[in-house]
Nucleic acid binder design. Structure first.
Lengths: 211, 211
DNA sequence: ATGCTATATGGAGACGGTCTCCATATCCAG
DNA sequence: CTGGATATGGAGACCGTCTCCATATAGCAT
């Protein structure tokens, strides 16, 4: 185990292997961007001038390749999170985070699906980052709840899944007569006009962690 | 040459053709139920004891077969709509309709995707029923808005798309630590606790445009 | 019945995607 | 330079979609 945790990971690779890995990754990024997450893996291998076997050796599954190709975008998202953290108003911070999250989820067409899959089944290469995403959502949600901006009965998981659903709809429907803002607003305020949580029992504690 | 194209539709089929059509439909219903909307069409043909060509002659695309297989469920849904109509409270009626809609969308795993696709692009065999679904949603939403139960700025399209997103999430995540009810509640009330639509000034008209 | 033709059928096969396997090529430590 | 560990490519197995057309059949006219 001489894997360098700090420098990323692939240090024990032979020089040619590392070169190929990079080529594949660059090509994959382009193809996923252009054709969505269902881009043909053999096409990617071909255009990276690499055999299919080589691609599959480096990235055993589509998800693994996807996860690797998303690394850059994830760093951007983390940057967005940091920026959001610096916003004083907790409501605005939450909103900024959710916007950044939406942007991330739109990196590739169809991305919401594997992300959702990763949320539910452990073991996916996307899973680690997904858990981080839920945790971050929880962080901003907590803050907003403490400040009274967010409803206390909403959990991080629920909010994250709802955001995923929204991203999924937008992924394929943005141009169909309904704008992103409008749907975001529905998610923010709901469709009912009844008072938010008017809990019969004075729901005290709240802000429980997400399981 | 051509017989009356004018008349309705599938009565002009030869007896054997009609028999095969039924076999295919029955088998498809079973397969879609068991394996989701991605069930293998050739498998369906095989189990219906019919050549692949026969299946494709009757149902040129997966969506066409899907639409036909859904007919029964659609009738049920329409029944549900009728029941909802008879509910006096507009909010409860809307809620009942949305519940029925969710049930319908769970007829087959993965159904939300082709439904969303049908919403945006005309010409899909599912399109007709989809338009009806949006219209029905509008009907119940209108009522609820008149009674003050639903926020006035929400449109039928927005609500329907949001419901689709919810169905999509539930389709693949119900068991992952978050319940259907919880997500429905988020959709109903939003995640914010700020007042619903209260305009800064007592603006009455409302109904701000949407993209 | 019988013939006749529009209609319907089956299934072979083209196509394209995923993924595996392993003989061969390449790297690099000693 | 060399040997063994590592990496490579691409042929090909497998599976799903969908088309094409020689053949079979229903059902009308006779």
């Amino acid at each position: 185990m001489s894997t360098d945790v700090v420098s990323g990971e692939p240090s024990r690779l032979r020089a040619d292997a590392r070169r190929n890995r990079e080529r594949i990754l660059r090509t994959a990024l382009r193809h996923f961007s252009q054709h969505g997450i269902d881009a043909s893996l053999d096409d990617i291998a071909r255009e990276a001038e690499v055999g299919a076997g080589t691609l599959y050796r480096h990235f055993p599954s589509r998800e693994a390749l996807l996860a690797a190709a998303l690394e850059g975008r994830q760093k951007e998202l983390l940057g967005g999170a940091q920026q959001a953290r610096e916003i004083a108003d907790a409501g605005a911070a939450l909103s900024a985070w959710l916007a950044a999250l939406q942007d991330y989820l739109r990196s590739f067409n169809g991305l919401p699906a594997p992300v959702l899959a990763a949320v539910k089944q452990q073991g996916s290469p996307l899973c680690l980052s997904c858990n981080a995403l839920v945790a971050l959502t929880g962080e901003f949600l907590d803050r907003a709840q403490q400040d009274g901006h967010a409803r206390r009965t909403v959990t991080a998981n629920e909010l994250f899944l709802s955001a995923l659903g929204l991203a999924w709809v937008l992924d394929r429907a943005e141009t169909c007569g309904t704008s992103r803002q409008a749907l975001e607003k529905v998610l923010a305020h709901g469709y009912l006009s009844t008072p938010p949580d008017v809990a019969p029992d004075g729901g005290a504690s709240g802000a429980s962690q997400v399981g």
